[in-house]
Design a protein around this nucleic acid. Structure first.
Lengths: 247, 247
DNA sequence: GGGCCGGATTGGTCTTGACCAAGTGGGCCG
DNA sequence: CGGCCCACTTGGTCAAGACCAATCCGGCCC
């Protein structure tokens, strides 16, 4: 074991294993290459399969590996940089971004969202569902909550259905004069529904992005987005001038 | 089990357990309260300890629980909102933020950082180490890489040492005319050194924030920050006018 | 009183062994 | 030939049990 051992206590096997595997991935494997199966790897390193899996799990969390039941463990490509501002000076749904609108329904928003919508509570709220693609695979899901009262021209919406209706809501939203956005990022685990769309198991780690879209009257809409934590690196396009924000 | 069961396949025990525990946390436990130990919980639910631990691990990942060896499992408080822009129109180290400078050394930056420093490669680079506190506990660590060539007045730095020297570097940096920042956020696992400072085990999930500080000449500095993913919710203060960024 | 020490408690690591579920691919059957 | 089906491979879930390491706390010793 040629790794650093500055600690006074022995390093757990799985952590040492993780280091060894990590170095092997850098030097001996190509992206997309398939590793030996877990039983063989465990035997090769002389550890129990559970111990090996502990190391593999962390490597997968770091985006180094990709595992699929029935297929195997493969070396993952570097994380894709995903800009949470897909299009400059845009509301969601502007042409050119990678979002794909899937549907729209009229529902009661989650309690947490309802609170931030503030002034618009009470009236109907549209929930627009979208999926974001990158390199041919789904990397994020989003539910955008839009109170009908917060945007004009919402009366004709009922004439359309499904994805078309979602796009109509976004179109109306884009007409608003915007006052900026407020974002938060935290770690979460994918709900069953999101996991399915992201081709992951429920509970998979995701980066949860909460966005408040601000308009003259207050919060015009709230978006809840979940990005695959294993494959995504969220970027926040350069926003010049923190100084511009001085109050 | 009153939970939704729309899937056709049976739900794994640990996931069901997670749901049950999650609901119990909401209704039957107070923040800071200590749960029964793992062996008793496992017995109570009629599962192996490993299965119970799988549920607890996910709940800890979501910031619902906090576990400490030799102490027990406690109900975690809601995540703290941490603004990655601690002070408006500021370089790091401005008065009033929650960062605490711990030391400064002259080192070769990691390869990834060296690349982005671009024009300033070759000369000496200072690494300033800081820790960010919130509610009395360390929630983030940071290493700020500052090429001596990128800031003026760096000649007198050598007269100071340790934290004082770090503050001196930050002071000089603050004098620069700034051109904005570029950020990226991704999931990572804490290196041994960071884990120690964050009072976590190595490998603990962290949100890794990479910040490029831009100045007239290019990248003036690069910061690598790691935030405890279980306790932090990163906020990006409202930046008005995505429209201001239009090129 | 103050500090050391040692046992009890708790989560962390590790093993062995078993079965399940999702894909893959080859071979049989129409 | 084309499509269905089943055996097989692979990761996912689960069990029962053992020992380790960090912490706490009470009692002993100075």
């Amino acid at each position: 074991m040629g790794t650093t051992r500055l600690e006074t206590v022995p390093e757990p096997k799985y952590r040492h294993l993780k280091t060894v595997l990590s170095e092997a991935l850098d030097s001996e494997f190509a992206v997309g290459e398939i590793l030996p199966n877990e039983r063989e790897l465990a035997a090769r390193f002389g550890v129990a399969r559970a111990t090996l899996r502990q190391a593999l799990e962390q490597l997968e969390l770091e985006g180094r590996l990709q595992r699929r039941r029935g297929v195997g463990t493969t070396v993952a490509p570097p994380r894709v940089g995903v800009d949470v501002n897909p299009v400059r000076h845009s509301w969601p749904g502007a042409p050119g971004d990678a979002w794909q609108t899937e549907g729209c329904e009229e529902t009661a928003p989650p309690a947490a969202v309802a609170g931030t919508l503030g002034a618009y509570t009470g009236g109907p709220v549209y929930a627009v569902h979208r999926v974001r693609m990158a390199h041919g695979q789904a990397v994020a899901t989003e539910t955008l909550y839009v109170p009908a009262a917060s945007v004009p021209g919402m009366s004709g919406i009922e004439t359309e259905a499904g994805a078309a209706r979602g796009r109509a809501v976004l179109r109306e939203l884009n007409r608003l004069e915007l006052g900026g956005q407020e974002r938060a990022v935290e770690l979460g685990s994918a709900r069953a529904e999101d996991a399915r769309r992201l081709d992951r198991l429920p509970g998979a780690p995701v980066l949860v992005v909460t966005t408040r879209y601000l308009a003259a009257g207050g919060t015009a809409a709230v978006a809840l987005s979940t990005y695959r934590a294993d494959t995504c690196r969220l970027t926040f396009g350069d926003f010049a001038g923190v100084s511009l924000l001085a109050s």
